[in-house]
């Protein structure tokens, strides 16, 4: 538990001191969403219809963009090796790093999302569900993404490769995330998609740290 807290505090401190990184992710998220009204035209009905999907896809891509920094810097300067040698199990280290990463890059996305929903003219019934779905979904995305980020350490053309590996695994989160919001907008109960999102998060929380840790061990061999 000590190791968990130490790495969490260290990562948060590092991120706060070079604050640009997390801001960049949010800025990308905002710009990506803003491109859609410009691309498909400012017709309010079309935008309202598209809003949940566009916001979720943009969130997905923002998470993807932020992932290459999750282990890369620590891998290059050797601190990852020290963490692997340290007393805390590598799985705990992974969990702490993912939690810190989510607090720094995931939470700002969730804060920015309602503003974007207003810009996209989304019906007000969906706002609470948008935040709730993102709260359940983005940690799952970060956990799944950490697996890919661990696997591509030291690979050629890592960024493109990461997208190819991880985006197919993101699809279930996208489907149920959008499903919850659209159910709320349409006046249906959103319980089932939310429960499935929660199940995805629980599954990812239980399984992904193991996979990520074994990927990191191979990278450090």
């Amino acid at each position: 538990m000590n190791g968990f807290r130490a790495i969490l505090v260290r990562d948060l401190r590092l991120a706060l001191r070079q604050g640009m990184d997390s801001i960049m992710v949010v800025v990308f998220f905002v710009i990506a969403v803003v491109l859609f009204p410009l691309g498909v035209g400012p017709e309010p009905n079309i935008l309202a219809r598209m809003a949940p999907g566009v916001i979720w896809v943009a969130a997905l891509l923002s998470v993807l963009l932020s992932l290459d920094r999750l282990f890369q810097a620590d891998f290059e300067d050797g601190s990852l090796e020290l963490m692997a040698l340290g007393p805390a199990p590598l799985e705990i280290v992974v969990l702490a790093k993912v939690l810190a990463h989510w607090l720094v890059t995931g939470l700002p996305l969730i804060i920015a999302a309602p503003v974007l929903a207003v810009l996209m003219n989304m019906p007000a019934d969906g706002f609470a569900l948008l935040i709730l779905a993102l709260l359940l979904g983005t940690p799952a995305l970060n956990l799944i993404g950490a697996l890919g980020a661990g696997l591509i350490l030291g690979a050629r053309r890592g960024g493109v490769l990461l997208a190819l590996l991880i985006l197919p695994l993101f699809i279930p989160v996208l489907i149920f995330g959008v499903g919850a919001i659209e159910a709320a907008i349409g006046g249906f109960p959103a319980r089932a998609p939310l429960l499935l999102l929660g199940a995805l998060l629980a599954g990812a929380l239980a399984l992904c740290p193991w996979g990520t840790a074994s990927g990191l061990r191979q990278a450090l061999e």
Partner: peptide, 11 residues
């Protein structure tokens, strides 16, 4: 496709 890409991505 991802499997094949990752398999051949390392030296």
């Amino acid at each position: 496709l991802g499997y094949m890409a990752l398999n051949s991505a390392f030296d």
